[in-house]
């Protein structure tokens, strides 16, 4: 696999992320509900991860030896669904089922409903533990498959995250790779106002993790960050990539705006978003 991802150009991943942003905004606008902010902050990371790292088979989503991806911040599901559609796990038509009765795109990602979803999330603080179980299973199977987990920064306020952080380091799970979407906003307000985080990299280092920080919207840095997660020298234990992102990133009026953690744009705002994403003329 080494070097394979180099064949995908940075511009191609950026274009994939742009198309996903369009779908994210459309999904939330159609449903008039959902979580655009955290979907937009994570999407560059997800696009790079799926386009260049994930060993998966969209036509065989339950392939036993696939890499696992666990979106622990399961409310940011529009981002996940957009990527799954881009990769061919589901169709773009399926995206219209977001939050609709009987739809594969449930409000929060659900492994029972949507092909390509490895964990039913929606309750914060659970994905890292589940990913740890996936990583242990891979080791027992003597497989080189990996468990990638995306967590949110507000989510780190859940105590069980630190149960898992301690346990994963104790068990030296080098096949457990975490990406932190550090977008600085949670449901009610900025994280710093809700619960101060202090030195996040130091927290993870002190728990025994390999740690790297990047700009989660700079695709060159994102690729370097994913290289770090996959690096042989970091296979001694779990690794975390702290990606500094912008909540609502890519849509001017949503950026760094706590109101768009869990709210849909109105018609005027939707049109503006489509213009900003290059989908419509001003």
């Amino acid at each position: 696999m080494a070097g394979e991802h180099m064949s995908v150009r940075i511009e191609e991943i950026e274009e994939m992320a742009r198309k996903c942003r369009v779908e994210i905004v459309k999904m939330v606008y159609r449903a008039q509900a959902g979580h655009p902010g955290g979907s937009l902050s994570e999407i560059d990371l997800l696009a790079a991860l799926y386009a260049t790292r994930m060993r998966v088979r969209p036509d065989d989503p339950k392939w036993a030896d696939r890499d696992r991806f666990i979106l622990s911040k399961g409310h940011a599901s529009p981002g996940m669904y957009a990527i799954l559609a881009e990769m061919g796990f589901i169709s773009h038509e399926d995206l219209k089922s977001y939050r609709v009765l009987g739809g594969v795109c449930q409000g929060h990602v659900d492994m029972k409903w949507c092909p390509g979803v490895d964990f039913s999330a929606g309750s914060l603080g659970m994905g890292l533990s589940f990913g740890m179980g996936c990583a242990i299973a891979a080791k027992l199977d003597k497989s080189d498959r990996r468990a990638f987990v995306m967590i949110g920064d507000g989510e780190m306020q859940e105590g069980s995250v630190w149960e898992a952080a301690m346990a994963a380091a104790h068990h030296e799970l080098g096949n457990l790779k975490v990406i932190l979407d550090r977008n600085r906003i949670q449901n009610d307000d900025f994280c710093e106002a809700q619960m101060r985080m202090f030195d996040i990299p130091a927290k993870w280092r002190s728990f025994g993790w390999n740690v790297k920080e990047i700009d989660g919207h700079n695709m060159t840095e994102v690729m370097e960050g994913l290289d770090f997660l996959e690096a042989e020298e970091n296979s001694n234990g779990p690794s975390i990539l702290i990606a500094h992102t912008i909540k609502g990133g890519g849509i001017s009026y949503m950026e760094n705006n706590p109101s768009f953690h869990g709210a849909a744009p109105n018609e005027e705002q939707f049109k503006l978003a489509m213009i900003e994403l290059g989908e419509a003329e001003a």
């Binding site: 964990f119 603080g125 533990s129 740890m132 179980g133 891979a138 199977d141 069980s160 149960e163």
Partner: peptide, 19 residues
């Protein structure tokens, strides 16, 4: 061993069961 961490233990189990 999941240490004294029951919440983590249940979900480590879920991850293992999923595989």
């Amino acid at each position: 061993s999941c240490g004294i961490g029951e919440q983590n233990m249940l979900l480590v189990g879920a991850g293992l069961a999923s595989a």
